[in-house]
Design a binder for these strands. Structure first.
Length: 465
RNA sequence: GGCGACGUGGCGAAGCUGGCUAACGCGGCGGUCUGCAAAACCGUUAUUCGCGGGUUCGAGUCCCGCCGUCGCCUCCA
């Protein structure tokens, strides 16, 4: 393994080394969803990218603390709840549960903390108070706004010049149209609100992340992530709030994932028929969805379609067959170590981690994985490795797959039903009698029972499909 | 209009601190294995990286222009 993990930062526009913070922990904050409906497939990208990043850093021997929030107070939630005729808190609660449920199905584990806005009100009010005290924010007609022209670095993340920016966001009491809301006074048609020094109301969209990140991770944490679409204004505003309040850097690396291209014929944002994550997971196994996302670099736009998922399914199948080849060979291993396989294992391991070290290059890591798979297949067909070598290769393969949450692809298959065993025997008898018609009937019956038959040097094998 | 990203084979996708024969996967084609398949293996599938210039001994990789696609521009992951 090389010495350093580097990640591209949107702020510095270059790759920067990931250096663990105090107590050797890499602290990661990634903006989570606003819960006003079931999350769509695009929302899954940051969840997957940052969850897998955490898994990778830990495999690399680092300790991590990964925090991803749920925004459960927001204009969209009020609107959606009104449309559905339920209270906004009920909608937010339902959608929060659904989000956890849907993303759980990806099998990547949960972030270490998933704070919610509704549970972070004291911290939020605290940060706002600090900003008001420091003259960086002001109350106006029940609202509180951030004075953008008091924060010199405003625009640094998104490369915007304050003088050239135009705002069309309403706000009666604003000093400057570009000032953004930290606190919004209660409106008559809003059914949830909190008390504050500036009157009843609720937090603005950006302040929650400043408050929750500093509460959970402290100042100057290592990685702040989210979708690229959040860079402006959300992250720009977070920086202004957090750094304005603490006079310290908010985060070292600003890591943004590119967007999914959801503009295919079958769906469009304007039509609102974007595939929902849970629907996709009803159609495809989690491994397929993970392979689909991870085969592309996180900073690349990624087109979404059934054809792409079908492609990812083939990718998974090839990996699965590689693991099966090892297991099959274990039944009749060789006498000596296979040197080609030994070399391939070293190379795959090196290339896999080198690719990830360099700006989380998951596509390159996949390439390394496939190089290993080919070497495995070659070895199983050629000079059979020893059982010990097979075991070692299997262990390493599973370890790499596990970084991506794909270890399930190398899981041994479950027991084969007696019915299938009987048919298998029947087919063998038929083949011995050279009655291939009967043999093929048995094979078709096995297929109907959900198993695929493959003849191998070790005799016929059946695999679930 | 402003800011930014990107255009690599039939498809997806690496490479882009310039220099071995342009990774890897899917698909196609030919072969091996098989009774036939499936899986796997072997070979093949871009003299070429949107187009046009330039810099350089040398560029997909740097610079300029053009064409095209996309994201953001005050609450979209």
């Amino acid at each position: 393994m090389s010495e350093a993990v580097a990640i591209y930062s949107t702020l510095s526009k270059q790759k920067e080394p990931v250096t663990p913070g105090p107590e050797g922990v890499v602290r990661i904050y990634a903006c989570g969803p606003t819960v006003y409906g079931r999350v769509h497939i695009g929302n899954a990208r940051p969840y997957i990218v940052f969850s897998v990043l955490k898994r990778f850093l830990e495999r690399r021997g680092m300790r991590t603390l990964f925090v991803s929030n749920l925004t459960d107070v927001n204009d969209k939630i009020y609107v959606a709840a009104r449309e559905q005729g339920i209270s906004s808190s009920e909608l937010a609660e339902n959608c929060s549960e659904a989000y956890v449920e849907d993303t759980d199905r990806l099998g990547l584990g949960r972030p270490d903390l998933e704070p919610r806005v509704t549970e972070s009100m004291p911290e939020i009010i605290d940060v706002i108070q600090t900003l008001v005290d420091k003259g960086l924010a002001y109350a106006a007609g029940g609202d509180v706004y951030f004075r953008v022209d008091r924060f010199a670095r405003y625009g640094a993340l998104s490369g915007r010049d304050l003088d050239e920016m135009v705002s069309n966001e309403p706000g009666e009491g604003k000093e400057n149209p570009l000032d953004f809301a930290l606190w919004k006074g209660r409106k008559p048609d809003e059914d949830t609100w909190w008390e504050s020094p500036w009157g009843d109301g609720r937090p603005g969209w950006h302040i929650e992340c400043s408050a929750m990140s500093v509460t959970a991770l402290g100042r100057d944490f290592e990685i702040h992530g989210g979708g690229l679409d959040l860079a402006f204004p959300h992250h720009e505003n977070e920086i202004a709030q957090s750094e304005g309040a603490t006079d310290e850097r908010m985060a070292q690396i600003w890591m943004h994932n590119e967007m999914l291209e959801l503009s295919g014929d079958k769906m469009s944002k304007s039509v609102g028929n974007i595939a929902l994550l849970h629907e996709v997971l009803d159609e495809w196994p989690a491994e397929v969805v993970l392979a689909y996302f991870l085969r592309a670099h996180y900073r690349s736009k990624l087109p979404f379609s059934d054809a792409h998922l079908a492609d990812a399914a083939e990718v998974c199948e090839r990996i699965r067959n590689g693991a099966r080849a090892i297991d099959r060979a274990m039944g009749s291993p060789g006498e000596a170590t296979n040197p080609q396989l030994a070399r391939a294992l070293v190379a795959a391991r090196r290339d896999f981690y080198a690719a990830l070290d360099d700006d989380f290059g998951t596509p390159g890591a996949f390439a390394a994985l496939f190089d290993l798979i080919r070497a495995i297949n070659q070895a199983v067909e050629g000079d059979r490795p020893t059982a010990g070598q097979l075991q070692e290769v299997r262990r390493e393969l599973v370890e790499m797959l596990d970084v991506f949450g794909l270890a399930g692809l190398a899981k041994g298959e479950g027991a084969v039903p007696a019915e299938v065993i009987d048919l298998l025997a029947e087919r063998e008898a038929a083949r011995d009698a050279r009655d291939f018609e009967r043999a093929d009937v048995a094979r078709d019956q096995i297929l109907e029972l959900g198993f695929e038959l493959r003849d191998t040097p070790e005799g016929p094998q059946v695999y679930p499909r």
